[in-house]
């Protein structure tokens, strides 16, 4: 295992060392010490690596990740795993706003709470939050799955496209064009599979499903007040 101590080296040193693995992979296990809330940790990875960040991360941790499995042993700031392509990011603590924003693939697991706008404009990733999510989560979500084991804040799924949203707890309010939907067998299966992948022990039957009413896809003058 390779250890990078950010008390002695810079974030650029860390990211360069991780990027170098894309061309020739010489070390798959990485440990990052003393992250102390610094921004842009382990961003833009493009290799099947395991990266353990031992502490709290700042903004955009694991952003644009491809293939790597990144674990934050603490909390993460805004935009964790933003625009993730594949691989996984796991946050042991809480995440700030815009977790998994615009993420295209891969799995994001937040073991604590996520702030506002979790999964905003997500485009195909799977996001599992063990705790609660804040307001405007999944705003304009296009594809993928958002699972919330706790409660969701105001305006969940506002202007939603085709993300499947599953919430176990209370939803404070639904956003425009987001509605509760029937939980069919295929959804129980999808959710069971995802909870298993995320290593979260929850009963899929306890969740409710939310999705798009598909009324705002194209502009209709009758809907003007909903925009």
């Amino acid at each position: 295992m390779k250890t990078i101590d950010l008390a002695k080296q810079t974030v650029r040193d860390l990211n360069q060392a991780l990027h170098d693995q894309a061309a020739a992979c010489t070390e798959t296990e990485w440990e990052v010490l003393n992250p102390k809330g610094q921004h842009n940790l382990a961003v833009g990875l493009d290799q099947k690596l395991r990266v353990d960040i031992k502490g709290h991360a700042g903004y955009y941790c694991g952003g644009m990740n491809k293939e790597a499995d990144i674990v934050v042993h603490g909390s993460a700031g805004q935009g964790v795993a933003e625009n993730m392509m594949s691989g996984s990011v796991r946050v042991k603590g809480n995440a700030s706003s815009s977790a998994g924003a615009t993420s295209i693939g891969g799995l994001l697991v937040i073991e604590g709470d996520a702030g506002s706008r979790c999964g905003i404009s997500m485009k195909g990733s799977d996001i599992v939050v063990t705790g609660n999510v804040g307001h405007m989560s999944c705003f304009m979500g296009q594809a993928g799955t958002l699972v919330v084991c706790g409660d969701a804040g105001d305006a969940l799924g506002d202007s939603l496209y085709e993300v499947h949203i599953y919430v176990k707890g209370e939803v404070k309010s639904l956003g425009a064009d987001c509605i509760a939907k029937e939980m069919r067998d295929e959804h129980i299966q999808e959710l069971s599979h995802l909870l298993k992948r995320a290593g979260v022990d929850e009963d899929p039957h306890a969740f409710k499903r939310y999705g798009s009413a598909r009324q705002l896809y194209n502009f209709k003058v009758d809907n003007a007040s909903a925009y």
Partner: peptide, 22 residues
């Protein structure tokens, strides 16, 4: 504004850290 400003406080490693609600 950011966690970075808190890292030098004594006992911060075991502090309860969270984001205030709107």
């Amino acid at each position: 504004s950011e966690y970075q400003a808190l890292t030098t406080l004594p006992g911060i490693e075991n502090a309860k850290v969270w984001e205030p609600e709107p």
